[in-house]
Write a protein that binds this DNA or RNA. Structure first.
Lengths: 136, 136
DNA sequence: TATTATCCTATCGATTTAATAGAGTAAGCA
DNA sequence: TGCTTACTCTATTAAATCGATAGGATAATA
């Protein structure tokens, strides 16, 4: 299940991508437009900034803005930052690999085999979509 | 992230599918073979039986067994029973549809658009795999 | 009737999630 | 300089979920 954090983050990013130019947009405006808890959104935007996806400006006329062109932001990046691993199981994760404690042999593991396929097909979707593609 | 319930359930089902004939297999044997907490597995097998995927037999020589041929059990069924909705968001779920409280219009929702693609590609994988395909 | 093994409910601790509170900091402007 | 604005950061919370465990009830076999 997609977390609200990711859901809100995606909506906020899409909203920023739909803006003309790179004018900073206030948290309150985004929260209002997307029906999101402002305080919660605050923390989400903070992590997006720390990851380098967003820039921010304090004080009057301040807010958040996209640093790169939406079409140069693949959804793989966004999803990994917001939701974490794309794979449903750590043992098939490209960026967050971990061995299973149970499971003596990955190669003969039925779960591994199936989840590898799921990861690949999901990855395809995220690789074929940039933030620009999400803007209506 | 795939829950342990689903992971264990998949392993147990695969193990049963790999058995010769339809001989009942004891919980303890499955748990031991797959390195799974026996008590936890107990509750998982119980739900699998209630859903009609497994049959059971009590007393000596008892245990669990597959009711249908592994190649007639699509992974869509298994995953929905164990993990629940395949979609990452209720508003794109075929079997567990729910409207989002926020989000005034699905058609113009960026999250909806993206998650629809993910659902379809994941569904493809599960539709193209039966339990028989998981057996090594 | 004794043994075996599933059935069922209840509970528990740990973790995660979503949200909130509140004080701190930097930028703009008069 | 001092005021206002708006992001920054830490801490806390309530609720939900997860994984696991305990223990007795029930049914089938020998």
């Amino acid at each position: 299940m997609l977390s609200k954090k990711t859901k809100y983050g995606l909506k906020a990013l899409t909203f920023l991508a739909s803006q003309e130019g790179r004018v900073p947009v206030q948290i309150s405006e985004i929260a209002k437009h997307e029906n999101i808890s402002q305080k919660f959104l605050e923390s989400i935007l903070l992590t997006l900034r720390k990851t380098g996806l967003l820039g921010s400006k304090k004080g009057k006329g301040g807010g958040y803005y996209l640093i790169k062109d939406p079409k140069d932001i693949p959804m793989t990046t966004v999803m990994r930052v917001l939701e974490g691993p794309i794979a449903m199981v750590p043992c098939v994760s490209l960026n967050f690999y971990e061995k299973c404690e149970d499971c003596p042999d990955e190669a003969s593991c039925s779960v591994h085999k199936l989840m590898l396929q799921v990861r690949d097909s999901t990855l395809d979707v995220f690789r074929n979509n940039t933030l620009a593609d999400l803007v209506p």
